[in-house]
Design a protein around this nucleic acid. Structure first.
Length: 102
DNA sequence: CCCATGACTAATT
DNA sequence: AAATTAGCCATGG
């Protein structure tokens, strides 16, 4: 069954390593109007596919980490591992590493 | 169908 | 610049 969550997860899966995306971008990619990012964040929190989805590549619009089911620390660690530095809970060169699906 | 919740964001104070 | 308020979408009970 194709749900909103499935679409979100599919997109998140497509985010290339070393890059990050935002909840807003995902919503835009889904062609939803208004603030879909709410539902997006909620969908990821459900996290029905724990390892299959690199949810850690999705951050807030301002570059802050936001949240993570396994803990923000873990998320930051994973990002750093992939080449994305995080300082003070903010992604370094966030705009450059931002992936908008377009 | 109505209410509550959430890993959000933009605007206001 | 930090904290608060309000707005909006999808999902579950």
């Amino acid at each position: 069954m194709k749900t909103f969550q499935d679409k979100v997860l599919s997109l998140v899966k497509k985010i290339p390593k070393g890059k990050v995306s935002t909840y807003k971008a995902v919503g835009k990619a889904l062609r939803r109007r208004g603030q879909v990012y709410r539902a997006v964040g909620r969908a990821l929190k459900e996290n029905i596919y724990p390892v299959a989805i690199p949810c850690h590549r999705v951050v807030c619009s301002d570059g802050s980490i936001g949240g993570y089911s396994r803990g923000v620390r873990k998320k930051i660690a994973l990002l750093k591992k992939e080449g994305v530095e995080v300082k003070k809970n903010k992604v370094v060169d966030f705009k450059k590493k931002l992936f908008t699906f377009f």
